[in-house]
């Protein structure tokens, strides 16, 4: 037990992916405008770099062997890479890679400064629990409408697309409004879009029930201080069970003994059985 040293590994990874996507988006705009692009860097469109594109075309792909309009082969491949990663480590894509998740997290720091302990606890638990399933409704709606129309129907509503394309003038007003709503919500609720609206997060969340490496709590060494639960951005009650099997976990590792938990080897990302101290 002892004071933890700050660990910025996850932050660095998030910054890396955020910067990468931002620079590629700028490069894409330059290429679209026929200007010279940043050398040695992809100028792919944002749609080409989002694994969710693969998810929405699953139905079309298995029925007709083709991708729906505007879906790139790269999206399909990224989806499978993400699935593999999630199967092993849980939704690390959400907690470590997704630039939109990182953006909300960083914005949330302002809310944390303003509201301190009340931050991320504004919505009553009873209501919040049910609201968390909203993202599955979003997922089903998108996959269904995409399957019957053969088009990316959510493109106009996609706040992630707006964030990395607002300078192009190609973003729909509804998307801008949604982004502003999400930014405002992030001042009160950590990762509001991830919790209530993200269809990709919904798919990846399911892997939490059978992932290989899980968040586990050693119930014998645990001192029941509740630090893990208090520090979980997704409001998961880590301190009430042995293994976290919650569809909202994003493998951010904030609850672990490496970060919030004050007792060594007590909350860990691991596979196999947690050794119980005799």
């Amino acid at each position: 037990m002892g004071k933890k040293k700050s660990d910025y590994t996850r932050l660095y990874v998030q910054i890396f992916f955020f910067a990468l996507i931002a620079v590629i988006s700028i490069n894409h705009t330059l290429a679209e405008q026929g200007k010279s692009t940043i050398p040695f860097l992809s100028s792919a469109s944002l749609h080409a770099l989002c694994p969710f594109g693969g998810v929405v075309t699953i139905y079309e792909y298995f029925v007709s062997g083709r991708f729906i309009k505007k879906i790139h082969e790269s999206s399909w491949i990224l989806m499978w890479i993400t699935f593999a990663l999630t199967l092993v480590f849980g939704p690390v894509f959400c907690g470590w890679v997704c630039p939109f998740g990182a953006f909300q997290e960083w914005f949330g720091k302002i809310g944390k400064k303003i509201f301190r302990k009340r931050y991320n606890h504004f919505i009553p638990y009873g209501l919040d629990r049910w609201l968390r399933y909203l993202r599955y409704i979003v997922l089903v709606w998108i996959v269904y409408v995409t399957a019957i129309t053969g088009k990316i129907v959510f493109a106009d509503y996609d706040p992630y697309f707006v964030l990395f394309n607002f300078w192009t003038g190609e973003v729909a007003l509804i998307g801008v409004i949604l982004l502003l709503v999400i930014i405002s919500m992030s001042l009160f609720v950590e990762r509001a879009f991830c919790k209530y609206g993200c269809p990709l997060g919904a798919v990846l969340g399911i892997f939490n029930f059978f992932r290989i490496f899980s968040i586990k709590r050693n119930t014998t060494t645990c001192i029941d201080c509740g630090a893990c639960t208090r520090n979980c951005p997704m409001n998961i009650h880590v301190d009430t069970g042995g293994t976290v099997r919650n569809h909202q976990c994003i493998t951010c590792m904030q609850c672990t003994s490496e970060h919030a938990c004050p007792v060594d080897d007590t909350v860990e990302l691991m596979t196999g059985r947690m050794e119980v101290a005799k």
Binding site: I77, L78, I81
Partner: peptide, 24 residues
Amino acid sequence: MKLKSKHIAPMVLAFFIIGIAGTM
């Protein structure tokens, strides 16, 4: 087997790099 942040970071990068390079 336990994993720390310092393990996850290179693994995440490795999955993407190997996956993308392989399919390329």
